[in-house]
Simulated assay, not measured.
Amino acid sequence: MSSNEIAIKVQGLGKRYEIYDQPGDRLRQFLFPRLRNLFRLSHKQYFREFWALTDISFEVKRGETVGIIGRNGSGKSTLLQIICGTLTPTTGSVQTNGRIAALLELGSGFNPEFTGRENVYLNASVLGLTKEETDARFDDIVAFADIGDFIDQPTKTYSSGMMVRLAFAVIAHVDADILVIDEALAVGDVFFTQKCMRFLRNFMKKGTILFVS
C-alpha cells in the first residue's frame, strides 16, 4: 500500500507511567541513579511501572472511519492523545499524513480565563490557521456553535454543553484531513448532536475519522 494512502500509521506503540508511592520517591529516583552511576553502585527503582498501552499497531487509510471501543481505563484516550501529539509514546511510533483536528477531553485546549472569541483564535492558530483565515471563518464558527453573547464571556462560565459546541465548531472549520473525536460529544444536547452528525457524514466523503466510544 502506498504511503500516500495511509492517514495514520501506528507501530509497536506503548505508553508507560511511573507510579510513586511517596512524594519523596520521585526525588530519590531523580537523584540516586546519578549518584549510583558515579560510584558504580547497583541500581534501584523507586517507582512501579504502569503500562497504559503495550505493542499497539494499526493503519487507517485515507477516507476511512474507524471506531475504537473499550472499557473505561483501557487506554483509548491515551492512544488518541499520542496520535494527536499531546502525549509522547514510551515505545513505538506514530505517523500521520495531513492536518489533524481533535475533540478530546472536555475543555482541553481552552484557556478558562479567555473568552470564547479568544479561544477560537487560540485553537485555530494551534491547528494551523492564520489570523486572516480565522477572521474569514469566525462568523461561521460562531453560527455553528450557536452560543449567543457567551462568545465574549470567559469559557470558565460555560456549561459543558456550551464548551463542546464551541470546540466542535472550531474543528469543523479548519479544513482538517483527519478528525480525532473522543467521547466529549456525549454531553451535547440532541439538536447539536444531530448537527455534528450531519457534518461528520459530509466529512466522511473526503476525510478520515478516528472515533472513540
Rank of each mutant, 00 (worst) to 15 (best):
W51H: 00
I178K: 00
A143E: 15
Y158E: 05
A124G: 13
G207V: 01
G109V: 04
E105K: 04
T155N: 11
A101K: 03
L122A: 12
F32Y: 15
I147Y: 11
R48L: 05
R40N: 10
Y17L: 11
A167T: 05
V66T: 15
V126H: 02
V126A: 14
R48A: 09
L53H: 02
R40W: 04
N4P: 02
L103A: 05
G148H: 13
K156A: 00
T157Y: 07
L179M: 08
L106A: 04
K15A: 01
L210K: 01
D25W: 14
R62L: 00
F30L: 13
Q29H: 10
T134C: 15
R99Y: 09
E132R: 07
A7I: 00
S93F: 00
F150R: 01
V126N: 07
T90S: 12
E49A: 10
V142I: 15
S160Q: 10
L53E: 02
I100G: 08
G67E: 08
L13H: 08
I83M: 05
A7F: 02
D177M: 13
L106K: 13
E64W: 07
I68A: 03
Q11R: 10
S2E: 15
L103T: 10
V164K: 07
H173I: 14
P33G: 06
L185A: 09
